[in-house]
Simulated assay, not measured.
Amino acid sequence: MFFILTVLALLLPCSELLAQCSLCTKTAQQLGEGPAKGLNNGILMLAFTPLALMAFLGYRWWRSQKAQ
């Protein structure tokens, strides 16, 4: 739990992350500044769920291996 909170605390201030593929970057450039930030935030939010799930499953696996 501490690890997850630490990772979140480190990643939350990084709202300027470039999470766009080349196609999304071209689309965002055509939309303008405001919608581009919204698109980038949406991509980051969609990426967070599978990454958080993999981290949770990895932690559970590590904890079960440690117990054996």
Rank of each mutant, 00 (worst) to 15 (best):
P50Q: 11
F2L: 04
C21M: 02
C24Y: 06
C24R: 14
M45L: 15
A36T: 00
G38P: 11
N40C: 14
A19D: 07
S64F: 02
L8P: 01
G32H: 08
A19L: 13
Q30W: 15
V7C: 06
V7T: 10
L18E: 15
L17V: 07
Q68F: 03
Q20R: 09
T49Q: 09
S15V: 10
Q20C: 01
P13W: 02
A52W: 00
C21L: 04
P13G: 06
E16G: 14
R60F: 03
M45R: 12
P50L: 11
L8N: 04
R63P: 01
A19K: 05
Q30P: 05
L31D: 04
Q20F: 08
L51Y: 08
N40P: 14
L10F: 08
K66N: 05
K26Q: 13
T49F: 15
T6W: 02
A55V: 01
I4W: 07
K26I: 06
C14H: 09
I43V: 11
G32R: 10
Q29T: 03
I4T: 01
L8I: 06
L10W: 04
A55G: 01
A28T: 12
G58I: 00
A9P: 03
A28D: 12
L12H: 01
M1W: 14
T25C: 10
E16L: 11
G42W: 09
M1V: 15
Q68Y: 00
A36M: 04
P50R: 11
G34H: 10
Y59E: 11
F2W: 00
L12M: 02
L39Q: 06
A47D: 12
P35K: 07
I4E: 02
L17K: 04
N41K: 09
P35E: 06
V7G: 00
T27F: 10
L23H: 14
T6A: 04
A47V: 11
C14W: 14
C24F: 09
L8G: 12
G58D: 00
Q68M: 02
M45W: 14
F3G: 04
L23P: 01
F56I: 02
N40H: 14
S22N: 11
M54C: 01
A36E: 02
F3A: 08
A67F: 03
M45S: 13
F3H: 05
L8S: 07
C24L: 12
W62C: 01
C14G: 03
